[in-house]
Amino acid sequence: MSQPRPKTQTEQLLDAFIARLKEEFGRELAVELFPEKPSIYRLNHAVGAILVAYGKSTFGASEATEAVFQARSMSFQLTLVFRQLHGSNGAISFLDRIRECLTGWRPPHCDMACRPSAEYYIGEVQGLWQYGVTISTRATQLQLMGPEDGPLLKEIRFEEHP
């Protein structure tokens, strides 16, 4: 029986974003991964939803000569789908609250706290208002290293020198 594959860094980060947003907004909104088929997505919540997706990464130059060690700047996309535009249950109010919730939060594996980098109006379709929020953070990308070749060190002898 094979072991289940551990989640990747990106999958763990998506889980962390979902957990953070559910902790803050789970009683008020639906919080879930962006749907596999957005064209058939249906908002089932009475107020709205936060849909979380991985956006992209850019990588800095390697910071070491003997292995790959580089900064990974990442963005995560939040899509807000709301039945109301204004008021305490509207998309505009939640844009501010979501930004406040994530700004300064440090997800696991990251060496830089989250910061908003963009907000934008997506549109209105059949009475549902949609906005996008881009949240950025940074982690480190490391080369996977296996055991080195060559003989193993089996015995250590220390000698004192006068």
Rank of each mutant, 00 (worst) to 15 (best):
L14I: 15
R20Y: 08
K22M: 02
L29N: 11
E32G: 14
E32S: 15
E32R: 12
L33R: 15
E36G: 04
E36C: 03
K37V: 14
P38I: 12
I40H: 11
Y41C: 05
Y41V: 06
R42K: 13
R42F: 02
R42W: 01
H45A: 02
A46W: 02
A46R: 13
L51K: 02
V52F: 10
V52Q: 06
S57E: 11
T58H: 03
T58G: 03
F59T: 12
F59M: 08
G60W: 09
A61K: 14
S62N: 09
E63R: 14
A64S: 15
A64H: 10
T65A: 01
V68P: 02
V68C: 01
F69W: 12
S73A: 07
M74R: 13
M74F: 08
S75Q: 14
F76L: 00
Q77K: 08
L78V: 05
T79V: 14
L80V: 12
V81S: 10
F82G: 04
R83S: 01
H86N: 10
S88F: 02
N89W: 08
G90A: 08
A91G: 05
I92M: 05
S93G: 01
I98C: 06
I98M: 06
W105S: 06
W105M: 04
P108Y: 07
P108F: 03
H109S: 01
V125R: 14
V125Q: 10
V125M: 01
Q126R: 14
L128S: 05
W129A: 00
Q130H: 11
Y131D: 05
T134N: 14
T140V: 15
Q141V: 03
Q143V: 06
Q143F: 09
G146T: 15
D149P: 12
G150A: 04
P151Q: 00
K154I: 09
E155N: 11
R157M: 11
P162S: 00
